[in-house]
Design a protein around this nucleic acid. Structure first.
Lengths: 195, 195
DNA sequence: GTCTATACTTTGATAGAC
DNA sequence: GTCTATCAAAGTATAGAC
């Protein structure tokens, strides 16, 4: 629960953008949800909706990364970490009636070709995720090149599973994606042992 | 090049929805792009924007499936078909300045939690894709269960790669996803041979 | 089927008092 | 920092003549 007004606005924006998209969410709805006065938007964000959007992307993208890293840190090994990520994502989807998946994917697709500043904001988040995951695999002894490939694959499987899961209202995609991510991780670990 | 007015409207809507999303595209923009009179929208689509959206999802989703099936039909074997799909998608992304990826993913994420009729329209398209890909793998001798898993994995890798590629303005994700899809396909084919 | 005109709502954004 | 009032523009949708 954020303390000051600015934080409440960013949090409310992040949540609504995640569920309804950027264009589909009005700033009045955000301020009402944040229980903040209307004028405070332009007080804290002179750049208006776009500036708020960039802040929301950064905050929710960073928080999701921390969440995933916490899952990996809590797991006994990296294979379990991968598995727990997909299972946790499936749990969240079910618990939120298939509303909460990736915090920025919807906005990323919306803005990719029409709003360059926001596109860059989403790119920076994805970049950070890739770097973080790559580092995690490298720490497990996988080669740098293969670690990046595995990081990309894991993230793409998760993002693709989110698209299908939300549309189909099923966690079958998450289970399938998790199994593939696990198989790829094991293959990379096996290659490491052979080296 | 569609002949009559209704087709032009659907085509224009499909293209704009794909690139800018559903909420981010106005019906006036669609009609202007289709060079159609404003009143004809409600003549052909009494249900307004939502009905047009459902028609656009169905048309572009079906066409994309046919495109992919044509790629597989033209390939000498299923492994090459998988590879050609990802390479073709990468070519299209580069050729369109990272605008044309999945025709319905943006809309699917936007509407999943806020517009049930459109969510169902996207689900029907994804379902058809999954069934089509599953059948394709089964025809190659892979078991039904594993064929569905492989179909889901392939589609998810493509969708996830589209998200990252458009945000990062890079085809690296497509290359990585294609390599993983190919590896999974080969593993499934190898398991078939052992049976 | 198409044309013009328009109703109504919501949008993002601003001004000025307090 | 917040309040009220308000703006112009864009949004969807409808009516009625032709």
């Amino acid at each position: 629960m954020p303390a000051d007004t600015k934080d409440r606005i960013v949090e409310a924006g992040a949540e609504l953008f995640q569920r309804q998209g950027f264009a589909g969410t009005g700033i009045k709805q955000i301020l009402a949800s944040a229980q903040a006065p209307f004028s405070s938007l332009y007080h804290f964000f002179p750049g208006g909706k776009d500036e708020l959007g960039a802040a929301a992307i950064k905050v929710s993208g960073t928080r999701y990364q921390q969440l995933v890293e916490a899952v990996f840190d809590a797991a006994p090994d990296i294979e379990r970490g991968v598995r727990d990520c997909f299972e946790g994502a499936a749990d969240t989807l079910r618990a939120t009636d298939y509303a909460d998946a990736c915090p920025i994917a919807t906005v990323a697709l919306e803005v990719a070709s029409v709003n360059e500043p926001l596109r860059i904001a989403t790119a920076e988040v994805f970049d950070a995720w890739i770097v973080s995951a790559t580092q995690r695999f490298r720490a497990a002894g996988i080669t740098p090149k293969r670690s990046r490939h595995l990081a990309l694959t894991t993230i793409m499987l998760l993002e693709g599973a989110f698209v299908l899961a939300r549309a189909l209202r099923s966690t079958e995609p998450l289970e399938s994606a998790g199994a593939t991510a696990l198989a790829e991780t094991r293959a990379a670990l096996a290659a490491r042992r052979r080296a």
